[in-house]
Design a protein around this nucleic acid. Structure first.
Lengths: 213, 213
DNA sequence: GTCTATAGCAAGATAGAC
DNA sequence: GTCTATCTTGCTATAGAC
């Protein structure tokens, strides 16, 4: 759990948590209020005591989920960042959207949502990118890393489990980590053709599971 | 138009074309058979004379759309490929999903679809990547390019038009083109910090609009 | 705050006339 | 092949009891 065990979550927080997981798994627009509330152990009628509309839930969801993602990349060493990237581009993350990053799942829903949702999304994403830019050196280096990671997970989830999915994840991981290691001003060497193995770690960099909680 | 003007499209082709545009714009799952058929000038009842189910339509759609995308990247020079990449990562492509690549829009729908759809998607995507690998040098270089481009368009569509969106598109374009120019075995230099301008072209490389037709 | 019940609408799919 | 009409189900949102 992310919070002290003593913390008794409020109902609203529980809805956000459970509905968020379900929305990332099944899609937000395609999942009814009924199902979203049932995930939190409630019925649809109670929903509107917490949110004015389904769209407002999406906004709250996006804000909360992006804060989570931001925390996952708030690391204090290059090795830790590489471990987080490895976890992001792992089969586990691909296979468990419930516990994963909101960007691959919810971005296309946000693209079709109202301006309030989009603003919330823009703010949250900007914070993620700016934080990443502190380690990567610049926003211009951070954006491609984010785009690559989000694109890779999006594509990997649509592919059946198999060789193509693995090649995709491995080569994108190697590319992103190589770009990260590149000295400021130049660009990253792709590292040698990535076989099953991972980008040769400078330090053994232990793998941490991406999924929260 | 993609086909000789004399070509009179069959009804099925017209459905695939118009429904495809609508699905990319509004989402496949969230758009009813009624609306998809209306786009082709027909009513919902006629749908099942052409497809056994809505899911079968998605499969046919994915196959057709990915073939289109493949054609867009079937180029015979590096300059032409760079132009195609520039068009893919352009504001026009971001703003007109109807006419654009199916990967940013439909991948998350495919991820939740049945095995038939996913197989079709896997085949189509593999062909795109393999073709790209012929110019990029290897699959391991092609996958990150595709992931990056798809991720960038996905994120850009969720962001409001503005500075962040532009920085995203510009820096990803520079990064992808730099990676492409990198000699085999090494990795791409990110090019100097990309201001409003584009990656300095070796040749003036005229910009072609990505959207088909 | 949460429930049940329901209004009002749209979904996927089928039937039968033409 | 295409239409209209319809079946059944699910959707967002509201009303009113507790």
């Amino acid at each position: 759990m992310r919070y002290p065990a003593s913390h008794k979550t409020t109902t609203r927080e529980r809805i956000l948590d459970e509905a968020g997981q379900l929305a990332k798994e099944r899609g937000f627009a395609t999942t009814g209020v009924d199902a979203l509330m049932a995930a939190a152990g409630l019925t649809a009628g109670a929903f509107y005591a917490h949110f004015a509309s389904k769209s407002e839930l999406l906004s709250a969801l996006v804000e909360r989920e992006l804060k989570r993602s931001q925390r996952m990349f708030a690391v204090d060493s290059d090795a830790a960042l590489e471990a987080a990237i490895g976890a992001y581009l792992s089969p586990q993350h691909v296979e468990r959207p419930r516990k994963g990053c909101p960007l691959p799942t919810l971005s296309s829903e946000v693209a079709r949502a109202d301006d309030t949702v989009r603003s919330t999304y823009a703010r949250g994403l900007a914070e993620v990118v700016q934080q990443l830019a502190q380690r990567a050196g610049s926003e211009e280096k951070a954006w491609p890393m984010v785009a690559q990671a989000v694109g890779a997970v999006t594509l990997a989830r649509a592919l059946p489990a198999g060789r193509a999915r693995k090649t995709l994840l491995d080569s994108v991981r190697d590319q992103v980590i190589a770009a990260l290691r590149q000295p400021e001003g130049e660009t990253a060497p792709p590292t040698s053709p990535s076989r099953p193995g991972r980008a040769s770690p400078r330090k053994p960099s232990r793998l941490r599971s991406h999924p929260n909680s």
